[in-house]
Amino acid sequence: MGSEFEFVKRLNFDDIDLIAPEDVFKDILSRLQNETKGIVQGNVKEYLGYVKSRFGSFFSSKEYAETRRLGAQGEKRNLFEFYLSTGCYQNYKFRVCFFEYGLGRYPVQLIVEEDVADDINMVLESDNVFICETRKALKEMILKMLNTKRVLTIMQELIRINQIYKENPQYKNNSDNIPF
């Protein structure tokens, strides 16, 4: 006689790859730095601010007091930013996306820079919020973001900034005077 609930049929108990999303980013981004001769740096940092998408409020790491709340209690939200930079010019970064996940690590919710999202979706003014249900889907999304026209343009700009520093060593320690 079967169970009244039949949870074994409705829930997945298989072990899956639950590598922390920020570690998936860091692994790919370490290879990015190697591929760009150490010039372009991909950075993942915990983010403590508020994030808003093109379509309204997205998520916040700040807790809001509510007197009556149903649903999950004690949920831990992990919020990060992913950005590109170059070591020779500390005043510039290009934020590619924010990403957030909860206690179970997946799904991961991403809010992607608008031009990057448009390149991924191949349509202007597209939705810039993406959900990655697995590590594999997250890895594919990171690679899509890195290969967009917008991100490639930014990487080329960072390479040129690095070239300016190589040709003009007087700017090395004083990035405020760089002739941009």
Rank of each mutant, 00 (worst) to 15 (best):
L84K: 04
S53D: 05
S61C: 06
S61Q: 08
R68H: 14
R68P: 05
R77T: 09
Y83E: 02
Y64T: 14
L79W: 00
E63R: 10
F59T: 10
S60A: 05
G71Q: 02
E63Q: 11
K52V: 05
F80H: 06
Q73M: 07
A65E: 14
L48Y: 12
L79Y: 01
S57N: 14
V51F: 01
F59G: 06
R77N: 07
S60G: 08
F80V: 03
Q73K: 11
R69E: 15
A72E: 15
E81A: 08
E63A: 12
T67V: 11
S57C: 11
E81T: 10
L70Q: 10
A72C: 11
G74V: 06
F80N: 02
A65W: 04
Y50S: 15
F59M: 04
L84H: 00
K52C: 07
F59W: 04
L79V: 06
F82R: 02
N78I: 00
R68G: 12
S57M: 09
L84W: 00
R69G: 15
S61P: 05
R69S: 15
G71S: 04
S60R: 00
V51I: 09
K76D: 10
A72I: 13
G49V: 00
Y64H: 10
S57I: 04
Y83H: 09
R69C: 15
L79Q: 08
R77Y: 02
F58D: 05
G49E: 01
F82W: 04
A65F: 09
S53A: 10
E66I: 11
Y83S: 08
F59Y: 07
S57F: 12
K62E: 14
L70V: 12
S53C: 06
N78R: 09
G74E: 07
Y83F: 13
F59P: 00
T67E: 14
F58A: 11
S53W: 03
R54I: 10
R54M: 10
L79F: 01
K76F: 04
R69W: 05
G71I: 02
A65C: 10
L70F: 09
Y83D: 07
S61T: 09
K62D: 13
Y64A: 14
R77G: 03
F80I: 02
F58V: 09
V51W: 00
S53Y: 01
S61W: 00
G49K: 01
A72S: 14
F82D: 03
G56F: 02
F82V: 12
G71T: 07
R68S: 15
L48A: 15
Y50G: 12
L79E: 08
F58K: 03
K52H: 06
G71K: 01
L70H: 08
T67C: 07
G56E: 09
G71F: 01
E63M: 09
L48Q: 14
R77S: 07
A72F: 08
L84R: 02
K52Q: 11
F82I: 07
R77W: 01
E81F: 00
S60K: 00
Q73S: 13
E66C: 12
G74R: 00
R54Q: 13
E81I: 06
E66V: 13
E63L: 12
